[in-house]
Amino acid sequence: MATYYLETPISEEAVRRLKVRDTVYLSGEMFTARDSAHRRALEYVAEGKKIAIDMKGKALFHCGPLVKANGTYRIISAGPTTSTRMEMFEDEFIEKFGVRVVIGKGGMGLRTTEACKRFGAVYCAFTGGAGAQAGEAITRVKSVEWLDLGMPEALWILEIKEFGPLTVAIDSYGTNLYVDVAKQVEKNKEQIYNSI
């Protein structure tokens, strides 16, 4: 359980150093995307349309932030949303955009785990509900795209400083902490049933 301080853009070499249960604090650039933004980004790729930001080596945050707009944008609270909703898009997203760190909550499945292994990426858990703490580590809103999707669903491009603590939950070697926990829970279930 080592602790790492990483800065974007993150190299493949740096990301391959991370192992499940490690702690990461991230600085640099991160962008948010939920279901709709994932779908649109992949549609743009399919149609050959250009996306305004370069995501290579950056961090993708499954988050619909609470933002105060007052001439400029300020992030008030920005915890993670449930990542499984993005499972259907994520392997292609990692492949097409070269994202190195995916941040969310609740874990992701086999397809994402495979993509992390193949393309050199990790999935990190940020404590669900810890939105105020996340907001503190977001130093600036650099820009926002696709506001027509609504505040939570838009693509927010954020400057971050020591954003964390993040727990590496899927590493680039095919280890998925959620799968390990699920196996243990399945074992415990028999014992629970017996004591009912």
Binding site: T23, C63, G64, P65, L66, I76, S77, A78, G79, T81, T127, G128, G129, A130, G131, A132, Q133, A134, G135, E136, P165, T167
Partner: peptide, 25 residues
């Protein structure tokens, strides 16, 4: 323990700054 610690730090911060503790209000 790390997760619970982050939760505790977060609600303390939210309360002292009167900020929504989770973005999903």
């Amino acid at each position: 323990r790390d997760q619970l610690n982050a939760i505790i730090k977060n609600f303390q911060m939210a309360e002292s700054t009167s900020t929504p503790l989770c973005q999903d209000t």
